[in-house]
């Protein structure tokens, strides 16, 4: 499933990132790599962007970017 499909406070273990290299590398740099567990911590009142929790910090990120991140719910 995709990271954007999660409900608030659900988590996912990343298995791959299905994006063009520049976007993928950007996400990699911020800690979104294979095997990391990401929690969807909230959604902006207007419905986008989302914020996610990983590696002990919180990242505000557009929903479109979350659609590239695939993995299994944990």
């Amino acid at each position: 499933m995709k990271l954007s499909d999660l409900k608030i406070s659900e988590s996912l273990k990343v298995s791959f990132i299905d994006a063009e290299p520049t976007i993928k590398h950007r996400l990699n740099d911020l800690g979104i790599t294979k095997g990391v567990i990401i929690t969807l911590s909230g959604i902006s009142p207007l419905g986008d962007p989302y914020h996610i929790e990983l590696r002990g910090y919180r990242l505000a990120i557009e929903k479109a970017l979350l659609e590239y991140v695939c993995g299994d719910k944990v």
Partner: peptide
């Protein structure tokens, strides 16, 4: 823009 809003909170 194609999805690029990404920033630490």
């Amino acid at each position: 823009r194609v999805g690029n809003y990404i920033v630490e909170l």
